[in-house]
Design a protein around this nucleic acid. Structure first.
Length: 441
RNA sequence: GGCGCGUUCGUCUAGUGGUUAGGACACAGCCCUCUCAAGGCUGGUGCACGGGUUCGACUCCCGUACGCGCUGCCA
C-alpha cells in the first residue's frame, strides 16, 4: 500500500541554505523516508526581485550535499508542479476569486485582505500538543493581507494554497510559524478544505542563545562544504538537535535513523548549535573513511589550498596522505598538517624551536643524521630502530631526539607518526632537512 | 504591551511520582605512546525560582523570572 504521506521543504531563495532550514528539510525528509512517502521541494520565490537561478542553486547544492533528495520539485518535476511559486500565479488568482465569491475578501487601499472568522482555533500539533488560540480580537489579530497592491502575493496565502494543491499531509516546519498556524487554518477552512497535520520543531540558536542569522559564521551549509566537513557527519549532527534515539547512541547510520525516526520524539525546546561537537562527530566519520575515499577527499581539499601537489608522483602523495588518515577531524586541517611533505621551504614553529632547538639538540641531531645516513633501507621499522639505538647510545630518552628531529624535518612538533613520515619523505630529503636545521645552530 | 512556546551539567540530551539524576561534546588529570590524535580510566559542574498537590516531586498544578517566537502589504 503506497503511503499518502507527503511533506515538503519550502525555502525562499535568499542565496544560501541556512543550517536551520537544512535541519527542517532533514526532518521532513526523514519523515517521508520513514513512512515511504514523498518529499517535495517547493521554492517560495514570490519576491521576484532577487530570485535568480544562482540563488536557488545554493539550496539545491546544499540539499544534495546532505543527501536529501526530493521526489518532486525543481529538476525532477512531479504531478503537482510547477514547483516555483513564481510560476503558479494563475492558481493563486483562482483561489483568490474563490474566496471573493464566498465573501471572505475585502479590499483595503488596493491590497486584498482576508476577513477573519474571529473564533478560537485549536492547533493540534504533533510536537507541541493542542494549543488554543483566541483570534476574536481584531486589535491583536488583524485580518491578514494576502495580496499587495502591486499584485504580489503574501507568504501566508500562497504557502497555504500550495500545501493544499500539492496534497501535503504533514507540515513540519520551524516553531517560528506556530503562532501563524491558526491564521493558516482559518484560511483553509474558508476554502472548505481540511488542514494538514502540523509539527513545529524548535529553533536552532547560536552559542550565546541568540537566533542564528545569516551573518553568523557557520549559519550556512555552504560553510561546512567549504571547510571540508563530511555530509554524513553534518547530517547526523543535525539529527541530534532536537531529536534523540533515547538510548545514548549518537553516531547513527542514516538508514538506522530513518528506521527509528519519529516526529513525536522531537523535543520542544530550542537547541544551541555546538561547533565543537560537530567537529568531534566529523572526526568520528573521518576516521572510518576507506583509504581511497580519504585520499580523494584529501586531494580535493589540498587542491583548493596553497599546497601544490603537481610536482609529486601520485604514489608519494598517497603515502604521505595515508600517514594523516585518522589524525584529523575535518579536511580543512589538512594543509597545515601535511604541508611539509610538499615543500622544503617551511618555517620552524617558534615555540617548538625554543623548546627543542637547544644547545643539547645539536649533538643529538648530528647523531641522528649519522645513524640515518648509515641505513641501507630507509623504512619505518629501520628508522625506529636507528632512533632508539641512537637515544640509547647518548643515554637520553627517545623523546629527546625525536622532538628535535621532527621539528627539523617538518617544522612542527605535531604531526603524523615520525617513523612513517620519515620513510615517506625519503632518506635524501630527510638528511637535507636535518642539515638545514643544523645550520641554524 | 498582547498572545503563544520553552527552561535537566558550559552545550546536546536520557529521564514522565520513589534513580547514587544516566550518556555525549568540551574541560582537567592519569594510562598508553615517537609528537598529536585515537583508545582506556578518573574527576568536577545540572533539575531557573517560589508556592501548592502528594507519604514522596526533576517529573503534576499555579505563579514569578528569564529566553525565544508571533503580533507586516518579510518568509
Amino acid at each position: 500500500m503506497p503511503s499518502d504521506v507527503r511533506v515538503r521543504f519550502a525555502p525562499s531563495p535568499t542565496g544560501y541554505l541556512h543550517i536551520g532550514g537544512a535541519r527542517t528539510a532533514l526532518f521532513n525528509w526523514l519523515f517521508a523516508r520513514h513512512h515511504g512517502g514523498k518529499f517535495v521541494l517547493r521554492i517560495e520565490d514570490t519576491d521576484m526581485k532577487r530570485n535568480t537561478e544562482e540563488a536557488m542553486s545554493a539550496i539545491y547544492q546544499g540539499l544534495e550535499w546532505l543527501g536529501l533528495n526530493w521526489d518532486e520539485g525543481p529538476h525532477v518535476g512531479g504531478e503537482f508542479g510547477p514547483y516555483l511559486q513564481s510560476e503558479r500565479t494563475e492558481l493563486y488568482e483562482r483561489y483568490l476569486r474563490k474566496l471573493q465569491d464566498a465573501g471572505h475578501i475585502f479590499e483595503d487601499q488596493g491590497a486584498m485582505r482576508f476577513r477573519s472568522p474571529r473564533e478560537h482555533v485549536i492547533v493540534d500539533d504533533i510536537v507541541c500538543g493542542k494549543i488554543d488560540f483566541d483570534l476574536s480580537n481584531p486589535a491583536t489579530h488583524p485580518d491578514m493581507t494576502i495580496r499587495r497592491p502591486d499584485g504580489s502575493w503574501i507568504f501566508h496565502f500562497v504557502n497555504v494554497i500550495d500545501d493544499l494543491e500539492m496534497k501535503i499531509s504533514h507540515v513540519i516546519r520551524g516553531e517560528d510559524h506556530l503562532s501563524n498556524t491558526p491564521k493558516h487554518i482559518e484560511l483553509i477552512r474558508a476554502l472548505g478544505a481540511t488542514p494538514p497535520h502540523y509539527a513545529h520543531i524548535p529553533l536552532i540558536l547560536n552559542r550565546d542563545g541568540s537566533k542564528m542569522s545569516k551573518r553568523d559564521e557557520g549559519a550556512r551549509v555552504e560553510y561546512y562544504i567549504q571547510r571540508g566537513y563530511l555530509p554524513a557527519a553534518v547530517r547526523n549532527y543535525l539529527c541530534l538537535l532536537g531529536w534523540s534515539p533515547k538510548d545514548n547512541r549518537e553516531k547513527l547510520d542514516i538508514d538506522e535513523i530513518i528506521r527509528i525516526f519519529d516526529v513525536k520524539n522531537i523535543g520542544r525546546s530550542s537547541a544551541i548549535f555546538d561547533p565543537d561537537k560537530l567537529h568531534w562527530l566529523n572526526g568520528e566519520y573521518a576516521r572510518e573513511l576507506g583509504d581511497d575515499e580519504f585520499y580523494e577527499l584529501a586531494v580535493a581539499r589540498l587542491k583548493s589550498s596553497s599546497v601544490t601537489l603537481d610536482n609529486y608522483p601520485e604514489k608519494y602523495v598517497r603515502a604521505a596522505l595515508q600517514t594523516c588518515k585518522g589524525k584529523i577531524n575535518t579536511f580543512d586541517e589538512l594543509p597545515a598538517y601535511c604541508g611539509f611533505y610538499f615543500t622544503d621551504d617551511f618555517d620552524y614553529d617558534p615555540q617548538s624551536a625554543a623548546k627543542h632547538f637547544t644547545p643539547e639538540s645539536k649533538p643529538r641531531l648530528k647523531a641522528v643524521r649519522e645513524a640515518f645516513s648509515a641505513l641501507e633501507t630507509f623504512d619505518a621499522a629501520e628508522i625506529e630502530v636507528a632512533l632508539k639505538s641512537t637515544a640509547a647510545k647518548l643515554s637520553v630518552k627517545v623523546g629527546a631526539i625525536v622532538h628535535p628531529t621532527r621539528l627539523a624535518v617538518t617544522g612542527s612538533n605535531v604531526g603524523p607518526s615520525l617513523y612513517h613520515l620519515l620513510e615517506v619523505l625519503g632518506k635524501e630529503t630527510v638528511l637535507a632537512r636535518i642539515d638545514r636545521a643544523l645550520a641554524m645552530f
